[in-house]
Every structure is written in structure tokens, then in C-alpha cells.
Simulated assay, not measured.
Amino acid sequence: MQDQEQWIGIDVCKRWLDVHLRPQKQSFRVSNTASGIRELLTHLCPPEAVARVILESTGGYERSVALVLSTLAYPVVVINARQARNVAKAANQLAKTDPVDAAILAWFGEAMKPPIRSLASEADAELQDLVTRRRQLVDLLTAEQNRLSGLRGTAQADIAAHIAWRKDRIQQLDEQIDTQIHPCQPWQAKQTRLMTVPGVGKVVAATLLALLPDLGQLSTRKISTLVGVAPFNRDSGQKQGKRAIFGGRAAVRQLLYMAAWVAVRHNSVIRVFYHRLLAKGKATKVALVACMHKLLTILNAMLNHGTDWQPSNSDGSQSAVPASSFA
């Protein structure tokens, strides 16, 4: 066993895993396959001697190695690639290669000690894949519908047939998502609770379950930052810049945007809040982002307290959740 804790950085691509061990300053490469992961394990200290294993989120290519290491009790953390790149820039590390990136990840782990979070289970990952695939098909369907009016004859008929196929496939995916959620009682209960809120339908609820499993477990500030609807300051000296949202989970934010538009029309709490902001001179999009934030806050508090949506009071306020939940 090593006298010092080991910090491990793994740069992931489709074919390879580039690994850097710190403080040993040892680097090596293995294939991103089952045999390569077994070879990787022969180089590592026992889990109790490893402080962190840091990987970047790489479009799912990191999933296999992360699950194997996590199952063996290694402290695995998957971070946003932007975080590691910003650390490299701060260290004036201009070169970018896979071994350099692995070394930066190991250094990031030792310097920042990011918190360890549980990884998605196989069932969670499958639901995430289904929801993601549905979103991809919806985007492709929109593109095809935009092309339809500019074509004639056979080409237009081909696009129309393609549109019909995509609509049918989206419907099948909706059924697969329902099948994935139905056997899991906690998922089913959460989906039913979320859908009691006017503006939140089955698609939005399933997306929140799949892509925002932290909903109901974090504070308002943290969950808003995670989604990317928390405005950040842009101040320096005497200059006070405009607050703006930044980062976060774009797929969740996109669905929340559509849910907020529906809620402005059909949810008395959000509608009153929206028009109050407009009356104060806020721009339409600013008011809508504020509605997204408020809607997310309500959903987070409902799951945290285990309460359903309640009809609003005469002034448009909603009393299903204690006021302290919105702090």
C-alpha cells in the first residue's frame, strides 16, 4: 500500500483511457474496453488508498470505466470538461494532449477535492438514454418540418414520409419511457406528483426524473445553479453589470422553458408572477427566466416535502409548501 493517497486522472475517448497517477507521476494508456479496464485495475492502489478518481464527462464513453471503478468502491467523480480546461488555462498549460489532460485531471482532484456523488445505475442510465434519444428525434422532426414547405413533388413526399416515421418513433419512445418508469415506485410517485403542477406534463416530468435526479435533494440556490437558471453577478469596481444565467444542464433548461410558457397561461401562481414582473418593466425573456426559476423552486420544494400542488389562493400565491423552502 502507498504511504500517500493516490489521485487518479483518466482522460477518456472512444478508443483509449489515458491515465495519470499522482503523486507517482506515472502515466499510461489502456484501451477503453473491458480488457483495458481490467488492465487499468492492475496499476491502481486499493480503493482505501485512493483519494479521488477524476474523469471528464465525454458523451457516455466514460460510463463503463466509471461504473466498474465505482462498483469496486473507488471514489469516482465525473466532472464537466470545462472545469478541467479552465484549470489548465489558469496553470498556463497551453498544450493539450490526452496525457496532459489526464495529469490536469489528477491535479484538479488533489487541489479541489470535488465531492463524491453516486453514479447513475443501469436503470437510471437507460432512462437518460431514452429521454435523450426522444429529444434528438424531436429536434430532427422540427428540422424536417422546416424543410417540407420548400420542396415539391417526390422530394416533398419523401420528407413527409420521414416526418410520419419520426412521429411514430417518438410515440414508441414515449411508451418505452413509460415502461421504464412504471415498475419503479419512487419514479412513478415523483412523476405523478410533478404532473399535479399546471404546466408540467409527462414529457417534462420524465425529463426531470432522468436528467435531474437531484431534484428535491438540494437547496433552491444549488438546484437553480445546476439547471442554469440562477442569475450571476457581473460587477467590477463601480460598474454594476447585468445579471445573466450561465451554464447548467441545457436539456433540462430547454424543457423548463417550454413548461414555463405553458404555466404562464394555465398556472395562476406563475401567471400572476409573470405579469407582475412585466408591470415592473422587466423584459419578456427576463420575466420568463424568472418564471422558470420559480417553477423549478416549487417543483424542488414539492419533492423535498412530499407534497402535491394545491390550488392557489385568491392573490395567486401557492401554499402547498412551507415558505422556508423558497429561501
Rank of each mutant, 00 (worst) to 15 (best):
G281T: 01
V200T: 03
D124K: 10
A206W: 07
M258W: 14
N304V: 00
Q171L: 04
I79K: 13
G9N: 05
Q310C: 03
P115V: 12
G281Y: 03
K282T: 01
L105P: 03
C291N: 02
R276N: 03
L94S: 03
N313D: 11
Y61T: 10
G228C: 03
K202I: 01
A260T: 05
S319W: 13
R29K: 14
Q83N: 13
A320M: 05
A102L: 05
A51R: 12
P23S: 06
M112V: 10
G153S: 10
T142H: 11
R253E: 07
T297N: 08
G281H: 10
L226K: 03
S314G: 02
S57D: 04
F232E: 08
A125G: 12
T196E: 03
A210H: 07
F326H: 01
A160F: 07
V77D: 08
L72K: 14
D98R: 09
V262A: 15
M195Q: 11
E126G: 01
C184P: 00
G306W: 07
L44V: 04
Q26V: 01
P311N: 08
A81E: 07
Q83Y: 06
E122K: 08
E175M: 02
V100C: 08
T220P: 00
E56G: 12
W7E: 11
S118F: 09
W165L: 06
A164N: 08
V12K: 06
G36H: 12
G216A: 04
A250P: 00
Q145L: 11
R15H: 13
Q26C: 05
S70W: 15
K113D: 15
V77Q: 08
V77I: 03
S319R: 05
Q176Y: 05
L69G: 13
G247I: 01
Q2P: 05
I37E: 13
F246L: 07
I223C: 00
N313Y: 11
D315Q: 02
L194M: 11
S317C: 09
G237N: 04
Q26P: 00
S121C: 10
D129Y: 00
D129N: 12
N304Q: 10
T220Q: 14
A327G: 02
Q176V: 00
T33H: 13
L208H: 07
L67C: 14
V229S: 02
N300P: 01
W16T: 15
M292Q: 14
K239I: 02
Q238W: 05
P183K: 08
M1G: 08
T307F: 00
L226H: 04
P75L: 11
N86Y: 10
L105Q: 04
I181Q: 10
P311A: 12
A279Q: 15
E39M: 13
F273P: 02
H305G: 00
N233A: 06
R15A: 15
T42C: 07
L288K: 06
H266S: 12
K113M: 14
C13W: 06
V252Y: 04
V30H: 12
E126P: 00
K96D: 06
N86A: 14
R271C: 12
A111F: 08
R271Y: 12
R52Q: 08
Q6V: 13
R276T: 01
I10L: 09
E62L: 12
L72M: 14
Q191S: 08
R265C: 03
A287N: 02
E62C: 10
D214M: 09
S268E: 12
M302Y: 06
L208Q: 07
V65A: 11
I181N: 14
G150C: 01
S219N: 00
Q171N: 05
I79L: 15
D214A: 10
